[in-house]
Design a protein around this nucleic acid. Sequence first.
RNA 1: GCCGCCUUAGCUCAGUCGGUCAGAGCGACGCACUCGUAAUGCGUAGGUCAUCGGUUCGAUUCCGAUAGGCGGCUCCA
Length: 667
Amino acid sequence: MPQITVRDIEGHEELREVPEGTTAGEVFTDRSVVVARVDGQLRDLAYIVSGGEVLEPVPVDTEDGRAVLRHSTAHVLAQAVQQIFPEAKLGIGPPIKDGFYYDFDVERPFTPEDLAALEKRMQDIIKSGQRFHRRVVSEDEARAELSHEPYKLELIGLKGGSAEDMGDVMEVGGAELTIYDNLDGKTGERAWCDLCRGPHVPTTRVIPAFKLMRSAAAYWRGSEKNPMLQRIYGTAWESRDALKAHLAFLEEAEKRDHRRLGSELDLFSFPEEIGSGLAVFHPKGGVIRREMEHYSRLRHEEAGYEFVNTPHLTKGQLYEISGHLDWYAEGMYPPMELDAEYGPDGELKKAGQKYYMKPMNCPMHNLIFGARGRSYRELPLRLFEFGTVYRYEKSGVVHGLTRARGFTQDDAHIYCTQEQMADELDSLLTFVLDLLRDYGLDDFYLELSTKDPVKFVGSDDVWEKATETLREAAERQKLELVLDPGGAAFYGPKISVQARDAIGRTWQMSTIQVDFNLPERFGLEYTAADGSRQRPVMIHRALFGSIERFFAVLLEHYAGAFPAWLAPVQVMGIPITDGHVEYLQDVAAQLRAHGIRVEVDTSDDRMQKKIRNAQKQKVPFMLIAGDDDVAAGAVSFRYRDGSQNNGVPVAEAIAEIRDAVDRRVQV
RNA sequence: GCCGCCUUAGCUCAGUCGGUCAGAGCGACGCACUCGUAAUGCGUAGGUCAUCGGUUCGAUUCCGAUAGGCGGCUCCA
């Protein structure tokens, strides 16, 4: 009788003797367990123990459990697709964050009606209680069986070739080729099959809740050289309630969409006449942006940064020196050609100059560094600029303020000695995180991108040293540190700060990047204490990334309800009747004298309507005044959450508001 | 850049399988109302149905191109 170790979710282990032929499913009889982890590997519940293994249950409401559930649901989708569209060829169908997809090669793209029909067919399949049955096949068998599935054949071929980078492909990722058969719950007849490494849930009956979300096109195996397949995205959850919660989350995210809030709150727009991806900020958006920049400037000044300004346009020569024209040209606006002279017959008399909109600020900052001889005494030299750059984003990726074609980086370049690098990176990371916290983000993790073994410049030991320095600085922050091996740009390692917003989404915010390339290309030097010429270390860092993007992140994080210090209108005065307007205007004047942005609603709406309007504009403080308040020299607060504080003396009210603004707290 | 979808009043959206079909709500404006914590009532103005071209006796409706938007892929702050 085989002996196995059973480890429960809490980690308690129990040695157990089981009859020959016992399956994982017989060990874990709880219906919420969808697969088992056997010696660390996820296995079907049909797995037969041989003795000596450690078995753990994987319930459906865990990350692994959901992934299996979603993967199995993807199979159900594929089966439904091939039932309704028999000519459809299968691509791949993995689980992803919050769901799954499956790619198909079909005659025509799927329509919303198709999705509805597919969803219905999937319900039928699920109800019929098909069993997922794993079957090991030889490569030849697989080829024979899947001869009508060209993409699957390609995957089989890939497995034969280089198996290393196939880790994400569920189809052929395992040690052996396997096919999963879907067997009818009653008759045991094979209804469908798919090349797949598994594992899968035992039967379709344990798929409690799913929904098809949308269809879209995707290149086969992610390359634009390959044919376009039609992808269907879906989601699946351990319970109807979990699905409902997920859909509610999506709805909430949609309500917070910065593009929507941007026009509802009259903050910015993208006039068609200007061009795709180029925003204009309206007065209210302008206030928020000004406050964001203002506070950032103050903090940078305190931290020893010096402010520079550079033009938006430059001759191509600069980007030849920097190398951007070699490796970044397709991200740049095409050049304009100036100063060419032609003779009367149109022949070229004088060659023109190409000018480019700048896609990055660093080359210009390097010119400032190189404008005169630099001493080690000046280092670290920290040059800061709100530098507007223009990048020619492909039309399909432009997305509101988060992916624009013109945007302003809060860009700084720090030039320091090798010896200063460690301290500089350390204090820099602290500075960055502190500042982000002041803007109201407080949940972070760090990501360290290390050398791509193929594409890099500079020597191994310099990389090694810089990477270690970054790692040490990151670890000192006591934050979660995620490694991104090989993810660095060719010119140096980087740390990025990822922030989680109010509804748990993560955004890449700041990046701190060491650069071994540009100081070399620009021939940057400083004179060291011993009189020798040395090359400085260059660190790029942007805190917001771009102000527009950070603006969008904060807008979504706060759902438009900015803390008072950022709110475009901090106080709205609301008179009970026209007779109280004058009194409120006097209060407003006093607030203004204290630097508060205040308006009085003098429209002829009723007071309730004015409250509703101010509420919809997400004004932090409403000051209401009627006869009682006037008599008492007071105002009545209404806050954004609907609570009230009536009859507050004007001086106290001003102090309260001023205090909330000064402390930059959310109210 | 590629695939699909979308574009009707300032905003959100109805509507026409080609022929009084140009509509609603909100917003704006005007008049009345003067009101204590999320919508007072009545009225007025606003659109060559994105642009250009084609098919047709006739196009907002069908076809094509262009521009912009949305969802993805690829790429990235």
